[in-house]
Amino acid sequence: MNGKRTQLKYYLLGLTALSGLISAPVLAQEATEDDAVTEVVVTGARDLAGVKQKRSTSSVFGIDKPLVDTPRAVTEISDKLLSRYSIKSVYDFTAVAAGTYTGSYFGVPGSLNIRGTMADNYYNGFQGLSNFANYPTPVDATSSIEIVRGPTSPVYGAGQVGGFMNFIPKTGYGEGTKYVSELGGDASITIGSYGEKVVTGNLSVPVDWKGNSAGLHIFAKAEDSDSFYKGMHPSSEVAQIAFASDLG
């Protein structure tokens, strides 16, 4: 009796193995036919946020080099990004630049804290005075800002180890042309809480200088506001004139 049961067990095991061998090629063939991929289409979208860094800069090593090929932590804030994120002061940079923090200087946005130290301010590669709540740094007067995290390049001399900001001022360059081709500008008035009153204006003028194409840009800003802090009355007037031209 035990011998018959053993033979029956082996017989059932043999049938199970045989059915698996017969069905395996069929399943493999069906899976291959159903999962066959004949074409792969990859689509992309434009940089709608305006944060892609395309142009070259000399702020890091002193030589023009694309930011994507620069082995340093650099964030470029273009004029489009300033408008899209409504950036009005250096304190608003914390929304788009990693490793940056606002400094506590009685609400006066003079400079930024980068990696634990107060950042140096550069203007088109030239180091400015340390602005510890002396006056609000005019973000509206710049076409782009480069925030570099880490020590400055030796070409700039001594600087803060945390990082620095390089402000590129607005000039007479145009959108589709090298220089502005016609007179243009804008003006704005801001009235906000705590008695905030700010007036700004921009004016771009095409210039023909000694037969060379050129552009002139004038920026002005005036503020007369109250403050959240007692005894603080932010009041400042800033004017900037930038001229750009081809030589020869």
Rank of each mutant, 00 (worst) to 15 (best):
V199K: 03
T117A: 09
V42H: 02
E76S: 06
K210E: 09
D140C: 00
D35E: 09
P234S: 13
F126I: 10
D34P: 00
F93N: 01
K4M: 12
L27Q: 08
Q127W: 01
S83I: 05
I168T: 13
M232K: 15
S56E: 13
D208Q: 14
E223L: 09
L203E: 12
S144G: 01
D120T: 05
D79Y: 02
V207A: 10
T38N: 13
S89Q: 12
R5L: 11
D246G: 10
P71S: 06
A239I: 08
G110E: 06
V90E: 03
S204H: 10
S245V: 08
S144T: 04
D92Y: 11
G201M: 03
A24Q: 09
G176A: 11
Y173L: 07
V198L: 14
A214T: 05
D34M: 02
P234H: 10
T57K: 03
V108A: 07
R55I: 02
V37P: 03
A244C: 03
V26A: 11
G44W: 02
K52R: 14
I189N: 01
Y194H: 15
G157F: 03
N134W: 07
D226R: 15
G176Q: 12
S23Y: 05
S78R: 00
L18D: 00
G162T: 02
Y10H: 11
G157R: 04
G172A: 03
T43N: 05
E146F: 06
I218N: 07
H233V: 10
V40F: 04
N124G: 10
G176I: 07
K230N: 14
R149Q: 15
T137P: 08
I87S: 07
I147N: 00
